[in-house]
């Protein structure tokens, strides 16, 4: 029962924070402010949930708690695209819809190529895939830097806005599109959920226990990449959010059962994001951004994990 109790208190905390976020400190007309806040909360719940889920699954597949799917180069690729768009087209930029779809498409093409390259021969080590992704990410980073230096300071401010995830100006049509996408992916991934507990035991045990290992892992990796791509395209990169919430979920839930872990990490993610957004809006009054705070905390926590006697 303690697990249920834990999940219950997480859910209560999440709901309470959302309520505070929605209703507290309402200045100006209700009809104007309230719908905007609702949209923000929706965006947070969606992306927070998607990132938490993706990271947890990713860590289970890789059997490693200090990895996050954001590092395979998706964040850097997104930044490269955003920088390029502003570099090439300047102020007459792409429409938000086009940019959204184009970002997702580009990230998926990248992931497809990466996976193709890696899974062409059996027995490729997953860490190898990650390292290749990370190196390519660094390469994308150099290219972005090159363009960022050449852009004039006013336009650079627009690149800089893209560098940090933000829930402030999300278009409703994109939100709807992302919601449908995430829901479909969620539905598809249901069939693999029962495998996760066993996958956590490692490849050999999973094969022994009758899981179609290669098939499952490939599908799950694509699911993970899609989730990250959609949430990144929607709000921007939050590299260390997943790492933070997946590990907190493991520590808090103290179980091997993924049904509980996933629910827990999604709730924690929502709590972190809504809480963070409250801080940014009402305490820092927008002097910093949510993703900077999350990356700061997540990054610090990551260091703590590494320096603690770790069990990987």
């Amino acid at each position: 029962m303690t697990h249920k109790w834990k999940l219950g208190s997480l859910a209560a905390a999440a709901v309470a924070l959302i309520a505070v976020f929605l209703f507290a400190n309402m200045i100006g007309s209700f009809d104007y402010v309230f719908p905007r806040r609702v949209f923000k909360v929706l965006a947070i719940v969606m992306t927070g949930g998607a990132i938490a889920f993706a990271t947890l699954v990713f860590q289970t597949i890789t059997n490693n708690r200090i990895l996050t799917p954001s590092i395979i180069g998706l964040d850097s690729l997104y930044m490269l695209l955003q920088t390029f768009v502003i570099f090439a087209f300047g102020s007459m930029s792409l429409s938000a819809e086009l940019n959204f779809i184009f970002s997702i498409a580009l990230m998926m093409v990248f992931v497809a190529l990466l996976y193709r390259l890696m899974f062409k021969r059996e027995g490729r080590n997953l860490y190898f895939l990650l390292l290749v992704g990370l190196v390519l990410g660094t390469l994308f980073g150099s290219l972005s830097t090159f363009m960022q230096v050449l852009i004039d300071p006013n336009e650079f401010m627009r690149v800089q806005d893209k560098m940090f995830a933000s829930f402030n100006n999300i278009r409703t049509d994109l939100l709807l599109f992302a919601a449908i996408g995430l829901a479909l992916i969620g539905l598809y991934s249901m069939r693999f959920m029962k495998f996760l507990d066993v996958l956590a035991l490692g490849r050999e045990q999973a094969v022994n226990l009758g899981i179609p290992y290669d098939y499952t892992v490939k599908r799950l990796l694509i699911i993970v990449a899609l989730l990250i791509a959609i949430s990144t395209a929607l709000v921007g990169p939050i590299t260390f959010l997943g790492l933070l919430v997946a590990n907190v979920a493991h520590q808090f839930m103290k179980t091997y059962r993924h049904s509980l872990l996933i629910a827990g990490s999604m709730l924690i993610s929502i709590i972190a994001l809504v809480g963070g957004q409250l801080l940014v809006e009402r305490v820092f009054t927008f002097s910093t951004t949510l993703s900077v705070i999350i990356n700061f905390i997540g990054g610090g926590y990551f260091l703590y994990l590494l320096l603690r006697e770790n069990r990987t």
């Binding site: 059997n63 490693n64 708690r65 956590a200 035991l201 490692g202 050999e204 045990q205 094969v207 022994n208 226990l209 009758g210 899981i211 179609p212 290992y213 103290k254 091997y256 069990r311 990987t312």
Partner: peptide
């Protein structure tokens, strides 16, 4: 089928380190 095979044959390798606390 992987699942049927897992009811027919099992394998235990020499190093059985797992990352999960069970």
């Amino acid at each position: 089928k992987s699942n049927e095979l897992a009811r027919k044959i099992s394998i235990l390798k020499q190093s059985n380190h797992i990352n999960v606390r069970l």
